[in-house]
Each structure stands twice: as C-alpha cells, then as structure tokens.
Design a binder for these strands. Sequence first.
RNA 1: GCCAAGGUGGCGGAGCGGCUACGCAAUCGCCUGCAGAGCGAUUACACUCCGGUUCGAGUCCGGACCUUGGCUCCA
Length: 421
Amino acid sequence: MLTLYNSLARGIEPFEPRKRGRVKMFTCGPSIYQRPHIGNYRTFLFEDILQRYLEYLEYAVERTLNFTDVEDKSIQEATKLNMDVLELAERNSMVFFRELVMLRIKPPDHNPRSSTSVEQAVSLIEELLKKGYAYWYRGNVYFDPLKFEGFGKLSRVDKSRWPQGKKRFHRDTYPGNRWNLGDFILWHGYRKGDTIFWDSPIGKGRPAWNVQDPAMAVQTLGFEIDIFCGGIDNMVRHHDYVIAVTESVSGKPLSRYWLHGAHLLVEGKKMSKSKGNIIYPDELQKAGHTPEEIRFFLMYRHYRKRLNFTYDKLKKTSAKLKLALGAVESLQGAAGTGTGDAGVRELTGRLRKDFERNMDNDLDVRLAFDDMLEVLLKLKRLADSGKVSPQDASDAVGELRKMDYVFQLLFTDNTAPHAVT
RNA sequence: GCCAAGGUGGCGGAGCGGCUACGCAAUCGCCUGCAGAGCGAUUACACUCCGGUUCGAGUCCGGACCUUGGCUCCA
C-alpha cells in the first residue's frame, strides 16, 4: 500500500484518495518570468514520479500544473526587457514545455495561468469580502488570516506571535521585518501607470499571488483535491495562504495530502543569480549528457532530501544508468536454450515486489532503482552465459517495462502505464 | 538572532542499539595480442568532539563545535 509523507501531519500516512481510483493533484508550477533551472525540474520530476506511480497503481490521475505569469516579479522583468508581460511568459513557457518533453515529464492535464483565471480569482475575493475575511484598504483588498480559524495549520504558525494590529502590505514581497506576519494582499487595485490590469466586478486591477494559485486550483480541480505539491519553500507562507483563501470560501479542507520536495544545491550552495551558479538543463546536454541521464540524476535521491549537484556526481550516476542500459540490452538479446531456468524466473519475480515495496515507502526511488539494478545485473550475467531463454528474457523485460513507465529511463517508447510486451 | 536538516572510510551514500551495506576511486591478481570491458581479492581500528544510558552506541539521551537551508519572493 502506498504511503506518503504528509506535511500536514508531519508523518508518513497511507494514501487514500477521496474517490476510489481517482486522484486530483495540484502541483505548483514555475514562475514563468524566467526559464526554469534544474532545481525547478527536480521538483517537477518528483511530482512526475508520483503521478506515474499512481498511474502504475491504476489510479486515474488528473493533474494541474499552473503558471504564475502575472506578478510583481514578472512585471518587473518584462519592464526591464521592454516586453509585454504575457509575451515574456509565453516565451518561457515554450522553453518549459520543450524541456518537459525532453526530460520525459508527463505534460499536465490542466495548465492554467494567473492571467486566465482572473475571473475565478475575483469571485473568490468577492466571496471573501462577503464573508468578512477580506476587506478593502486604499484601493486594495487584503486578507486577515486571524479571521480564519485553521490558519497556519500547515507550517504550524505560532499564532501568539502573529501581530494583532493591522499591518497592510502593498506588495506580496516586502523587505524588512523578520516575521512579516500580518494581512496579505489579494487584489492590487489599478494605479496610474500599471501596465497590466483587468476590468472586473470589483473594479480595475489584478489578483495577487496568494489568490492566483487558489483560483487556478479551484478552476481546474474544484475545492476538494487529493494531493497538493510544491517545493519546500512554498510550505511556510504561500501554502498556508492558499489554504486560508480556499477553505474560508468552501469550508472544506482543500487537500488531504501536502507534499513538499527538498531543494537542489549546486556545489553545496543554493542556486542564485548573484552567485551565478544557476544551471539549466541544456547546459548539461551541451556537456554531453543525455536527457535520461539528467532525469536520472534529478530523481535519484529521495525527494525530501536535499540533492547536491556536482558534475562529478552526475558523471557517476550517468555511469550507473549506462550500466543498467547495457544490461537491458544484453537481456533483450538473450538467446539461451529454450528450457528456461528457475533461477531466472525467481529473479524476474523479485523485480516487481522490490519495486512496489520501495515505491510504496514514500517513493523511495533510489532504493527502487538500486534493487532493480541488482537483479538486472544478475539476469544479465545469466543471459551472457546463455542461461536465459528468449521467453524468460521477454518476461523479464516485460516486468522492467512496467517499472520503467515510472522511471522513464530504460525504454524510449514507454507511454502506457501497463505496457504489454 | 530564531527555526530546521545534517555532520559516516579518498569521494558519493545506506544503516539508526549487537551481525561485511553498497557504489566509485585506488592497489593486487585472473582473463584478454594492445586498449577497453569483465571476474576475484585487498584498502589493519569510517562513523565531528565531550559526557551519559546500556552487557553492548554512527545508531538512544545531554552538551559543544561545524556545515547547509529557511525565517523576504523563490521549485
């Protein structure tokens, strides 16, 4: 049985969807004002593995991956580049989709953008105003978290430290105070000189970040979903806000499971523009690595552990992948005598059991791969010495294919979760 | 400053109360016409430090030191 670490419970729990056999997943997408780096892809990759494993388990998965295309940062960046905000987003989203395909990440079922869910955001804001959670202040709309009873349940906010006096921030981002606790903005009312805004029932303006994700989630999946994912950095503030906004409106828990992926570091340090150590997938390709090698590197560590990127490590994991690929090739070419071998069948039988045991354990991809490789290498040796009959080889390869629907590393044409060979 | 994660052999990385992790690298041997790959073996006491619990501790408890991350937006 699949178990997952739920940030909400701070522990590993058995996975049970709300509706039998169906899973609704919301995965926080990239800020699209710049192109995604390998750290972003690590998170999308962990989500991809989750989706694929759920499909392997025969769940019908419906996934949303959103783009935050209109926000302070994107407006800033577009202004700097002298571009239209939406044009900038479009350019980066094309890069993103190209790289998704390259890394064999399954494209999402829904891909809303903040700019395409303004209506939904406005209706959430109207509802919050009506219910008294939100209020107008100098042309903007703010949310008062203290009005929402469950506030901070995800990141375990200490409400006794929450400022009681009203503090109003005009931007989502604000420098200064260590604990910027206080009300957060939902709607930026139009101001002279604004380059992007909408006409809406509540006036001219644009929705703020913390209402955009709720709007996109609700618009595509409704108020009750199964799994909400994102990078660990989103847990503390953003996801608590998302919960506050949606649950204040619906009165129902937004998501049963909250999963957060740990970050990727480069040479032991956080990637940042100022350090100049941001790495993009195409750089690794230029260095001679295949998409599968990049995918493998990024998924070959438990998703809740930090992953340190170094070229040396990439070289090592790539060698490991090559070893596996070579073994699969040997196995596929096996032409031993047709009698079959009990040892071979025993090994083949182990593949699936090991895989499911490891993946069920909060997606232990690393162990799942290592255990598979161990068995695979044993099979290869048997194949090399002519002990594997064509039928046994094809049985073993069939098992590998099923697992590789999740891994997406060994076979290139593996698009169905229950491939028949 | 506050919060969190972590400090394991040359490197990467498991284990989390007793039993060889493992992989890479290195060294030696076997095999191969060279190279590569493969096979086998070796690398004498690897677990940051100091206390404690225990018959027994990388593994539990307390403390110190160090590293990284978060506390502003960020996958």
